[in-house]
Structure formats: structure tokens, C-alpha cells
Nucleic acid binder design. Structure first.
Lengths: 219, 219
DNA sequence: AAATATTTTTAGTCTTGTCTAAATTTTAAT
DNA sequence: ATTAAAATTTAGACAAGACTAAAAATATTT
């Protein structure tokens, strides 16, 4: 069994490990958890003893299959709770993260399985992120950042990269929601901004926004 | 804000304080939390500093109104989660305690208010215990232990004293549930056992059981 | 290739919450 | 009213998880 702190490390390392095929660096973990590198060194030694990751001094870490499974399970719980909060308890998608961060550490297999069933076994959370199955498998769908689309390309909004509440509230204000069709109308080379059509409205999107919105291209 | 550990102490002291009008003793708290008296002394000093209880060396403690409110709020959360688990997630009443013990420490006013609303603002938890309102008021209903009823007295099962899973499972096996009418048919002076009629069945009840089942007398 | 910068680790400290063992106070019994 | 017993507190220790500052290893520049 793992403490909440250990679980948070596993989750962070799992997320960081997806992008890089090399080991995850101490500093990267520290940054992601808003902690100090020395604290990370202490913790990864502990987790290496528990066989959930492999650690060679100065070489970063990578999760064992046991570690991956454990991490995926925490992410599964986090995302299922997020769906529950939005679907059953009238939370907005920008309000769920902090609460799910607490709920993901509750230890009760029956609890999370029943929540899963109550929700009808959802596959994606409110931000479009896939929910790992009980074995820890996580399906990666084909998606692209809005910023990579060319003029006249179109697709469906399927997720957000940054799920900070300011960004999500911005999307709400612009009436941009997951599942909506979006078409690139204009692109400005100068600042990377673009004009898109969504919901029959043309709106101007800054480069920063376009770098945070995932699109599933339709061909 | 309070740590989970502090919250557990407040809850324990609240429960112990209901029965005694004097201060709650260090040993009683230690026993209730399965901890040592010296640990309790440390913690109550800390809680006294936080103004949630008053403490005079060797004299035990009692909660301030602030402390009572905080404790009642934790108990409110615990009992609402228990209702949720039974009503929405197919938990049996003997399975809810440990999970609720974790869930009660989740910090999110919106979460618990929405759970309350989802459940239709219940007044009692699955064991018949009253749920405090948002201000921390807890209504005490008139109830008696089954063991205190005389022959031919009858009433409604409204709660359990001991809510250990073995006792609750025993009640399930005997088809005894809250809300059912119960009549005392025979009483045995020798061992305090009794025969009662419940659900058209006559069953024999040991003294230990009769001391753990609460009845609301009908007159 | 040497010098510099960055990253990582080590060593030592701190807080929270727990413990044991010993000392003190209160309560109960003779 | 002493003495014995029980309850409580103090003192000192420990584990978890964090920190700072300094040392060591790795990367990057020149």
C-alpha cells in the first residue's frame, strides 16, 4: 500500500514518462510536484526499494510495470471522480481538479468500481483525457494541437492540454466545448494567432490558446 | 483548517462528550482512537492552542462551541457519505464505515452540499444516527435500548448502538432492519435474553443483542 | 580539454504525529 | 491520613516527508 505522497510521485513520474522514452529526471519531478530536488531524491530511493521504479544515481528513474499499473490506477480514480463530479454533482469542468486530487487517494476498490458503474463506464474525463481501464491500459487517441492545423482544415475538439481553471473558463466564455466542430479560417504567421469557426461563429484565437486545445482531425 | 488527525481527535472528543457532562479524560480519548495517552496529551495541547477545546492539566478537556461545530461538521460528512454509499453505490450498511472514515476528511464544501442535495437532504444515516445540519445542530430522538422494554411493549427499530460489521451482519441474517416493528414476547430474567416478534417471526435475542438495538417506543 | 554551469545527491535540520519510559498528580483504599 | 493504584504529563526518541546548504557528478561552453 502507498501513502498519498507516494501516489503523487508515481502519478507525476507516469505523466512525465509518457513524453520521454529516457528516464524521468529528478528536477522534472520536483518541478511537477512543486517540491525540491533533494526531497525527490529521498522519495525515489524509497519507491525504488518498493520495486515500483528503477533508479540509478544521476540517471533519472523509470517506472516498473508494477509502478505503471499503480500510477494508472490512481489516474483512473482521479478521472472517474472528475466525471462523477461533473455528471452527478453539478461541478463545472474547471472546478473538479482539486477535489479529484483528494478523492483519488481514497482506498476502496468497491467504491471506485461502483462509481464507474454508476457513470456507465465512461472512457474519457471532462477534459477529454482517457480513463485507464482496471488493468491500467490507457488508450491514446489520435489528436493534434489546434495550432498545428492548416487553413481550411477542420476537426472536433477532443481535449485540453492545460486544464487550469482560467483556461477552461476562457473556453466556457467563448462557448467552446468538447465535441464541437472547429474549422481554421485564417492563420497569422506574425503571432501564430488564428481565426476559427466554431458553432457558426468566427472567433479569434491566440497562439497560446491554440497550443492548449486538442483536435481530432476529420479527413 | 485541520489535519485528518486533528479531525479524528475532535470527532472522538465530541462523541465522548455527549455522554459525560464533565471533561473528557485523556485515557478515554486514547482508548477511543487506539492511541497512547501521551500522544493524546500532545494533541490536546495543540487543539487547545487552536481554541477548539479547553484544557486544564489533569482535568480532561471539553470542546468550545467552535470545536463542537467543527466536530459536528465532520460527523455530518461521515454520515452523509454513509447514506450515499448505501443509497447510490450498493454498499451494505456493514461495509460503509471504513470508507466513510476516509471520505469525511475530504475538503470541499460544494462536494458535501451536492451530495446532501443528491440524497434529498437525509436526516438519518444507515445505522439510524442523526445527521447534523450545516450549523452543527444534531437532533436527539427519543429512543430506548431493546433490553429496557417490558413484555408486550412494542416499538420501531430506529438504530444500533454498536455498528460493528459482525453485529450488523447478524441483524441482516435475522432479517432485522431499521423501520421494522418489534414486540417483546418473553423475557428471561436468568440471562437477560428475550423472545421478540418481528416480521411475523418469533426469534430469540440474547442480552448482548438487546443492548445494542435502539427502539422508538410506541404508546 | 579545461572551465563553467547545471543537475543531482548528501548531510543535517524541522514539523507532525506517534511511541516508551519515567516522573508527577489525582483518586481510591486501607 | 497515609499508602497504593490509576491516570496524566514530561522527556526523549523515531519515522515520514519536507527543507537548506554544501558537495559531487554530469553537461555545456569556450
Amino acid at each position: 500500500m502507498f501513502t498519498s505522497s507516494e501516489e503523487n510521485y508515481l502519478k507525476a513520474i507516469f505523466h512525465l514518462g509518457i513524453t520521454s522514452n529516457k528516464g524521468v529526471s529528478t528536477n522534472a519531478i520536483a518541478k511537477s510536484l512543486h517540491t525540491k530536488a533533494s526531497s525527490v531524491t529521498d522519495m525515489i530511493k524509497k519507491l525504488a526499494d518498493k520495486k515500483v521504479l528503477v533508479y540509478k544515481k544521476y540517471q533519472g528513474v523509470s517506472l516498473t510495470s508494477e509502478g505503471k499499473k499503480t500510477a494508472a490506477n490512481i489516474i483512473r480514480k482521479h478521472r472517474l471522480w472528475e466525471v462523477f463530479l461533473v455528471e452527478k454533482l453539478n461541478f463545472n469542468w474547471d472546478e473538479v481538479h482539486d477535489v479529484a486530487e483528494q478523492l483519488e487517494h481514497i482506498k476502496s476498490p468497491k467504491l471506485i468500481n461502483e462509481i464507474d458503474a454508476l457513470l456507465g463506464f465512461p472512457k474519457y474525463d471532462p477534459h477529454g483525457d482517457p480513463i485507464p481501464d482496471k488493468e491500467g491500459n490507457l488508450d491514446q487517441i489520435e489528436k493534434s494541437l489546434l495550432s498545428t492545423l492548416a487553413i481550411n482544415e477542420f476537426g472536433i475538439c477532443v481535449g485540453v492540454h492545460d486544464s487550469s481553471s482560467t483556461f477552461l473558463q476562457f473556453l466556457d466564455k467563448q462557448k467552446i466545448a468538447l465535441g464541437q466542430e472547429i474549422i481554421v479560417v485564417e492563420k497569422e504567421d506574425f503571432d501564430g494567432s488564428m481565426v476559427v469557426e466554431i458553432n457558426k461563429n468566427k472567433i479569434s484565437i491566440s497562439n497560446k490558446i491554440a497550443n492548449n486545445l486538442y483536435i481530432k482531425k476529420s479527413q
